[in-house]
């Protein structure tokens, strides 16, 4: 009995020394699939399909030290109505992952919030989740007089639903938070 135990112990130690200790494999690279690197808000003029404005925020290194970069293409016109769509992407993997699909699949657990400091801009959510509550992947945006200011877009995970349509009333946790500067011409 005692020798048996001793044999097992010695075998285990030997196994460690000979097998596992020489085991120094290169670990597998992990590309985080859930990461949201990119938030892209596209506005299409309801009366002029060629007037497309795209606001894009890209943070290529995720939680790395580099700050997101902001890009704007197109011109936002005064006194117009736009249809807005938002996309959340993970561009750190190739091909890029479309996180918007996951948000759509779990629509009752998500909501996108829009808030702007520009007087006269009205943003309404035009889509609903599986429970019939507002979701915010699709929006309608109306402009009035020319001006400029900020637009803040926040994606919340597990917010209170339905809510008073404000960030402060929705709770939940922030999955994405970007700020675009808008110029209305």
């Amino acid at each position: 009995m005692r020798y048996q135990i001793l044999k097992i112990a010695i075998t285990t130690v030997l196994y460690c020394v000979l097998v596992s200790c020489s085991d120094n494999d290169v670990p597998q690279l992990i590309n985080e699939e859930e990461l949201i690197t990119t938030v892209e808000y596209t506005l299409t003029n309801d009366t002029d399909a060629t007037n497309v404005v795209v606001y894009k925020s890209v943070d290529a290194d995720g939680s790395g030290p580099e700050a997101p970069t902001l890009m704007t293409t197109g011109t936002l016109l005064a006194n117009s109505t736009y249809s807005g769509t938002i996309r959340f992407l993970n561009e750190s993997v190739a091909p890029a992952e479309n996180i918007t699909e996951e948000v759509q699949e779990e629509s009752s657990e998500h909501e996108v919030f829009y808030a702007t400091s520009i007087a006269g801009i009205a943003i309404t959510k035009t889509d609903t989740d599986s429970d019939g509550n507002l979701l915010g992947l699709r929006t309608a945006l109306k402009t009035e007089a020319p001006g400029n200011g900020n637009l803040t877009i926040v994606l919340r995970h597990e917010p209170i639903k339905p809510n008073d349509n404000t960030l402060s009333g929705a709770a939940g946790e922030t999955d994405a938070q970007v700020v675009y500067s808008l110029i209305i011409q």
Binding site: A115, T116, S117, I118, G149, N150, L151, T152, V154, T166, L167, S168, G169, Q177, V179
Partner: peptide, 8 residues
């Protein structure tokens, strides 16, 4: 901290 009016 973003507020409901689009300001920080």
């Amino acid at each position: 901290v973003p507020d409901d009016q689009g300001n920080f």
